[in-house]
């Protein structure tokens, strides 16, 4: 591959990856869906914000976004509290069973979650009666194993002397973790939050299964229900769907663009593990 060809190939690739996002935005602003080639360019006569009003009337965007936020926030909180504890212990403490826990953490990352949906549904919805609740939504995702792995990697990189001297001073492990280690791995916490965010924010199957009440559905679920049932009756179904899609995509894409370095380095690190 000579250099101009290489560049051209990359450019074609970038177009293929980015165009649908551009088209999502254009489509969400069209009064009438325009699938012609000209429709891919904004035309002043065919621009409107009406699709956003329409989707908001159908699925209550504010409420859906709030539900997505609570779901995602709960998972992030669980991961930060319990994941940091576990990551620290796996990196810095010697205790019986550490190797087993470490191997389990790696193992669960290749277990396809969907395969557990039936038993989890039976347990959480039928046995514990947690259907239509935030707790039921959050529980299966409460601690992100990839984040635990990232936390462990960062804690491992800290110099051992730090821990030795703190221990000689008689500090308790929890104090060492909170006062010494955590302040030194703040970038890891940000990375952990970011990679945890996209899981629940984008998750569809699980919240779809356990929320039947519309006022508890995260946006991914209410938008999907709109696509499958309501959209056929709307004046400009594609416009409304694309408006909802933009609202759902925007927070994740924005976070990614702002913190792209963190996202990409964390993927590189978790990739090396295999």
């Amino acid at each position: 591959m000579k250099s101009p060809w290489r560049f051209l190939a990359l450019l074609v690739g970038a177009f293929v990856f980015l165009f649908p996002f551009y088209y999502m935005l254009i489509g969400s602003l069209q009064t009438e869906p325009d699938p012609s080639v000209g429709g891919a360019f904004p035309s002043p006569g065919n621009l409107t914000g009406h699709n956003y009003t329409e989707i908001n009337a159908a699925i209550d965007l504010g409420r859906s976004l709030l539900n997505s936020g609570i779901f995602t926030g709960g998972v992030i909180l669980g991961t930060l509290v319990f994941g940091v504890l576990a990551g620290y212990a796996l990196a810095r403490l010697q205790f019986r069973g550490r190797g087993t826990v470490f191997n389990l953490m790696l193992l669960v990352q290749v277990i396809p979650f969907q395969l557990l949906t039936i038993p989890l549904y039976v347990l959480i919805v039928r046995s514990y009666g947690l259907a239509d609740s935030y707790l039921g939504m959050i529980a299966p995702f409460a601690i992100n194993s990839t984040a635990v792995f990232v936390f462990r990697q960062y804690f491992l990189q800290l110099p051992q002397e730090l821990f030795d001297s703190a221990r000689i001073d008689g500090a308790r492990e929890l104090d060492i973790l909170l006062r010494v280690a955590v302040p030194l791995v703040k970038p890891a916490l940000l990375t952990g939050v970011l990679l945890t965010f996209i899981g629940p924010w984008n998750e569809f199957l699980w919240p779809f299964l356990i929320t039947k009440q519309q006022d508890l559905q995260p946006l991914a679920v209410s938008l999907a229900n709109y696509i499958t049932t309501v959209s056929a009756r709307a004046a400009n179904p594609f416009g409304a769907v694309l408006a909802g899609a933009c609202v759902l995509a925007a927070p994740a894409v924005a976070l990614f663009l702002v913190f792209q370095r963190r996202f990409i380095s964390s993927s590189l690190e978790s990739g090396v593990k295999g």
Binding site: F21, M24, N202, F204, A220, L248, V253
Partner: peptide, 14 residues
């Protein structure tokens, strides 16, 4: 990387 971080439900729409 952008498609990877975006919800499938959103991209399916387009």
């Amino acid at each position: 990387y952008v498609p990877y971080v975006t919800a499938s439900v959103a991209v399916v729409g387009v």
